[in-house]
Design a protein around this nucleic acid. Structure first.
Length: 424
RNA sequence: GGGGAAGUACUCAAGUGGCUCAAGAGGCGCCCCUGCUAAGGGCGUAGGUCGCGAAAGCGGCGCGAGGGUUCGAAUCCCUCCUUCUCCGCCA
């Protein structure tokens, strides 16, 4: 959510910056009229309410003095009716205004490249050596199935498409990665580990920006009106919803493992095989609450923390700076980490690291005081995957496969795999 | 799932329709007193948000949330949420 005062004062400039995203902004034009109407109604109704407060005191006094207040009461009855009418109009206008502002995306940061599509994302750096195979490498779903690590067929029977069973060392590998990532971030990078709820309410999803625009992307438990989390960003960021933090505590950093659930509405036919696009997947997330002036340094730091995982695993990757068209609804700036997937001869997204500035904080009411008694300010929130675990498994299977069909386990994972060096 | 009880400011807490547009206490802040400490005394303490305003300031809202009744609601009514508790079920 944008600052309504900023929008009011610099409407044309904000609109121009939003236009770089290439999204439909037709709703935005309603803002000016609704905002004016709202303030007009407030001014009117507040005068009447002030009168009502004052006269009510007078009536109380008259009653105490046993005077007759019938005329005054009759007059105030009319004022009361008028207040009621105006309040109803005001509520309607505020609802309309809210509809508009909750659907306006974040303003791209000035350092974000302007672009029309994902083709305009900018490669910032690459790391690692792509593997050279003296044989025909197999896609990860074949390796996983051949080595009895993954079972897609039975998952389709038990649940449906885009689900998977992990078995044996496959399950162990997933668990090893989760532990490795959590340990790295909590012990080396200074994050506090958190294990959040996997179901959240509507207010939380609105706070982080998934609602109201993207309801069809999430799974809903209708009876309770709870949603399965699409990422632990949602519960972890909303942890401090409607709170005022002590500025001395900032930055606050959490790392959270969770299973994530996505309906993948609109991606039918894409990545239908393998671990890349499942309805249910594991992810270790990084979330930071920071002071506004530090958030862009913090974004670089956080991105580095996610990269560190790939470097320690020895997986080749690149970092992309996302262009205005590919930022997503909530981010002001975003880096994607993409890991090398040999059989697709391309890099695939394995992490997104974003600075939301105060966009989420404003929606979720997350503020801080610089010092005791200071006026509350919105924090800046950031998050990034550190990393998507299923995709990491896919990358490990493909990049470290051997001619005999076995897979070499990255050294850093071996302590988590009972000392095993190879999966065969 | 069923029955009870409760949600008031940083904390505790009084308050059953109008001098409560929230008493009191603790805590916190400032000050006084005391050589220091302890103890004591005085003053302050609703934060936040919205509107108008260049500002000073003025006004609206606020007792879990949202509605309703009323000239007037912390107080009465309805719906919902949360916590505690008893019963039932349960890993």
């Amino acid at each position: 959510m944008l600052d309504i005062k900023l929008l009011r004062a610099n409407f044309d400039e904000v609109k121009e910056r939003l236009a770089k995203r290439g999204e439909d902004l037709s709703e935005l034009d309603k803002f000016v009229g609704l905002d004016e109407k709202r303030r007009e109604l407030i001014a009117k109704v507040e005068v009447l309410k002030a009168e009502r407060n004052e006269v009510s005191q007078k009536v109380a006094e008259m009653k105490r003095n046993k005077e007759n207040a019938d005329d005054t009461i009759a007059r105030m009855r009319e004022v009361g009716d008028e207040i009621k009418t105006l309040d109803e109009q005001l509520h309607q206008v505020e609802e309309d205004l809210n509809y508009v502002i909750m659907r306006i995306p974040n303003i791209p940061h000035e350092s974000v490249p302007v672009g029309d599509s994902e083709d305009d994302n900018v490669e910032v750096r690459t790391w690692g050596e792509k593997p050279e195979f003296a044989f025909e490498p197999k896609p990860h779903w074949e390796i996983g199935t051949d080595l009895n690590l993954l079972d897609f067929e039975r998952a389709a029977k038990v649940t449906g498409s885009r689900f998977v069973f992990y078995r044996g060392l496959g399950a162990r590998l997933e668990r090893a990665l989760i532990s490795f990532m959590l340990d790295l971030h909590s012990e080396e990078h200074g994050y506090e580990e958190m294990l959040p709820p996997y179901l959240v309410n509507r207010t939380s999803l609105t706070g982080t920006g998934q609602l109201p625009k993207f309801e069809e992307d999430a799974f809903l438990v209708e009876e309770e009106d709870y949603f399965l989390i699409p990422t632990s960003e949602v519960p972890v960021t909303n942890y401090y919803r409607d709170e005022i933090l002590d500025g001395a505590q900032l930055p606050v950093a959490f790392t959270a493992y969770s299973t994530n659930f996505r309906s993948e509405a609109g991606s039918a036919g894409r990545d239908t095989r393998g671990l890349i696009r499942q309805h249910q997947f594991n992810k270790v997330e990084l979330v930071r609450f920071v002071k506004p002036e530090e958030s862009y340094d913090e974004l670089e730091k956080l991105t580095g923390h996610a990269e560190k995982v790939l470097r320690l695993l020895g997986l080749p990757y690149r970092v992309l700076k996302m262009c205005t068209a590919d930022l997503g609804f909530t981010a002001a700036k975003k880096y994607d980490l993409e890991v090398w997937i040999p059989t697709q001869d391309t890099y695939r997204e394995i992490s997104s690291c974003s600075n939301f500035e105060d966009f989420q904080a404003r929606r979720a009411g997350i503020r801080f005081r610089r010092e005791q008694g200071a006026k509350p300010e919105f924090v800046h929130t950031l998050n990034g995957s550190g990393l998507a675990v299923g995709r990491t498994v896919a990358a490990i299977l493909e990049n470290f496969q051997q001619e005999d069909g076995s897979v070499v386990i990255p050294e850093v994972l071996r302590p988590y795999m009972g000392g095993k060096e190879i999966i065969r």
